[in-house]
């Protein structure tokens, strides 16, 4: 399990995240939800030690910092330069980098893992494409293949559905569920409150502090959403019974 205690992040004078404490159980898909500027990406980046923070983060009772091999992180698509001279295969191979180790080259086994990962996201026929030649959804699937190639137990996704087509979104959620069933833990930052929410086991509602955390059924209610979004939300129940939320 991933244990987070008193996690705070400051950007100059502003408190982006205030004393977040929660324990995430293994084998869960956790949706991290909240309005713009609520500190969702900040929360993930602090856990991964990508920005400076105060507080403690432990995984299986040891500091996460020393166990980065267990972690895969998929950054926001906008954080990446898609003109970079790298092919799909190159990007997925980056997931093997830390496993291959310093001063060593990729082995046949690494190449096999890369191929398997690409097959799993349905991108094997694009292996030689330059990454900028793909659609948004395909790019996201390549990054997910990279996370798969890392064979990590703890996976973080920052807004994986922005600019992604319906086919890719379906494939991605399918992979999320498969990963969860393989005993992995997933944390997914998502500003979308629509149908996507139903795919999460747990919901973490953030607004610069933890508004609520727990199983979706108990946390995702009007009261908590009003706390996070300040009452600027309307909820509808669709004709097919699913909940639609507009912010």
């Amino acid at each position: 399990m991933l244990d987070i205690q008193n996690l705070s992040v400051r950007y100059r004078k502003n408190l982006a995240l205030e004393r977040a404490s929660l324990t995430i159980q293994p084998q869960r898909i956790v949706g991290i939800i909240g309005p713009n500027g609520a500190g969702k990406s900040t929360f993930v980046k602090a856990i991964l030690d990508l920005i400076s923070y105060t507080g403690t983060v432990t995984y299986k009772n040891k500091p996460l910092k020393g166990q980065m091999k267990q972690v895969a992180y998929v950054p926001q698509r906008t954080a990446v330069d898609w003109d970079y001279p790298a092919t799909v295969e190159d990007v997925v191979m980056m997931g093997r980098c830390i496993h291959i180790g310093w001063l060593r080259w990729a082995s046949a086994k690494d190449r096999e893992i890369v191929r398997e990962s690409l097959v799993r996201v349905g991108m094997e026929s694009f292996a030689d494409r330059q990454i900028g030649e793909l659609s948004g959804g395909q790019q996201q699937r390549v990054f997910i293949a990279r996370a798969l190639a890392q064979k990590a137990d703890l996976l973080f996704f920052d807004e994986p559905f922005v600019g992604v087509d319906q086919t890719s979104e379906t494939i991605i959620f399918q992979i999320f569920e498969e990963l969860r069933n393989e005993h992995k833990t997933l944390l997914v930052v998502n500003h979308d409150l629509g149908e996507a929410v139903s795919h999460y086991d747990d919901i973490l509602l953030l607004k610069n502090r933890v508004i609520a955390f727990g199983p979706r059924e108990t946390v995702f209610n009007d009261e908590n959403l009003a706390l996070a979004y300040g009452g600027k939300l309307s909820r509808f129940v669709d004709s097919d019974g699913s909940t639609v939320v507009l912010s």
């Binding site: 991964l48 990508l50 980065m68 091999k69 992180y73 980056m94 980098c97």
Partner: peptide, 22 residues
């Protein structure tokens, strides 16, 4: 030549590289 794969990862995706502990 010796640290090509690390430099590739780092120059393409610095955050991703940092997250795996490079």
């Amino acid at each position: 030549s010796l640290i090509y794969k690390e430099l590739l990862f780092h120059s393409f995706d610095p955050l991703g590289a940092k997250s795996v502990g490079l």
